[in-house]
């Protein structure tokens, strides 16, 4: 019998393009034999339910990552509104035409933490590399979609449940505060409750989890094993919610660009030697531009001149 390690080698060599002739032949036979077997499998109605579920998942994933027409619209609008909106908010007009409520999508890059006020005045703080999608107006349901990590502080409304749809988990609440961390690529999705109670639903789990969480409880879902577990007395990490910009060994060029995006300023720095130097640290929401510039100028011995919204670095 073939050893597991042998199969591992065959697969990894194939993927890295280093197969021997025999290894390549084995993989190609695997493909060919499966294709021949599937060509004989002509009962098209057999997996219709799965087909529908898969399409729904595909659409959900697609909508978390808006496509060309939105990007294009965004680019045109950005030149006009970038000063006001820092460029990351856009309206999905297509949806509006089709009759559904207009949806907003907010995206953060690897440096930004953003606070979003929802239509019902609930507050969401979106951590770095995350995306939140929410409607212009809530109706009897308050549904939002999340990819990444966010802290939710949800206003109580006992007649309209609030649901966060994440990649693997749905979190339902009436009014409470909690952190959700989940995206398509994650191995562990997580919900941590700060106050109140939330209900977690995992559509894919092997077993429906016992999943009403209260304050200081955390639910983690191991995506690969499709298993969830609940822990008590967990310290809720919300420190990052007070941050505005986060940098790890980031070249100053990028730091300046991120500041321009979040602080409504224009930064001119022509010295490439300076732009290449790296910065690690974070700025908080309450830091004003003068304070941030002060930190940077002290750290790097920079001369910084601010005239209104224009900042010159030397």
């Amino acid at each position: 019998m073939m050893q597991l390690q042998r199969l591992k080698n065959i697969v990894s060599n194939y993927l890295s393009g280093q197969s021997s002739t025999e290894e390549k032949a084995i993989v190609e036979h695997w493909f060919r034999e499966a294709k021949e077997a599937s060509d004989k499998d002509t009962d098209h109605g057999q997996y219709n339910e799965r087909k529908m579920i898969a399409l729904r998942n595909i659409k959900a994933a697609i909508q978390m990552n808006p496509g060309k027409q939105y990007r294009l619209r965004w680019a045109m609008a950005a030149s006009v509104i970038s000063v006001i909106f820092a460029g990351y908010l856009f309206r999905n007009n297509l949806r509006n035409i089709m009759g559904a409520p207009a949806m907003y999508t907010v995206v953060t890059n690897q440096h930004q933490v953003r606070e979003i006020i929802l239509p019902d005045s609930s507050v969401v703080v979106l951590n770095v590399n995350s995306r939140l999608r929410y409607p212009e107006k809530f109706n009897s349901h308050r549904n939002v979609e999340l990819s990444g990590e966010a802290f939710f502080d949800i206003r109580k409304n006992s007649t309209a449940a609030f649901t966060v749809k994440a990649s693997h988990l749905d979190v339902k609440v009436l009014g409470t505060s909690f952190v959700v961390s989940d995206d398509r690529a994650t191995e562990t999705a997580r919900v941590t409750v700060k106050t109140g109670r939330v209900q977690v639903v995992v559509p894919d789990a092997r077993q429906e989890p016992l999943s009403i969480l209260s304050a200081s409880q955390q639910f983690t879902y191991a995506v690969r094993r499709r298993e969830g577990k609940t822990e008590r007395d967990v310290a809720v990490n919300t420190e990052w919610t007070s941050q505005l910009l986060v940098f790890r060994n980031t070249p100053l060029r990028e730091v300046f660009a991120a500041m321009e995006g979040s602080l409504q300023v224009k930064i001119v720095s022509r010295n490439e030697e300076i732009n290449k130097r790296t910065f690690t640290g974070s700025f908080l929401k309450e830091d004003d531009i003068a304070g941030i510039l002060n930190i940077l100028s002290l750290s790097y011995g920079l001369k910084i001149k601010q005239t209104g919204n224009l900042i010159e670095v030397n």
Partner: peptide, 11 residues
């Protein structure tokens, strides 16, 4: 859908 799903399933 069907041919691709069936193929992946046979693999």
């Amino acid at each position: 859908w069907h041919p691709l799903f069936s193929f992946a399933n046979k693999l």
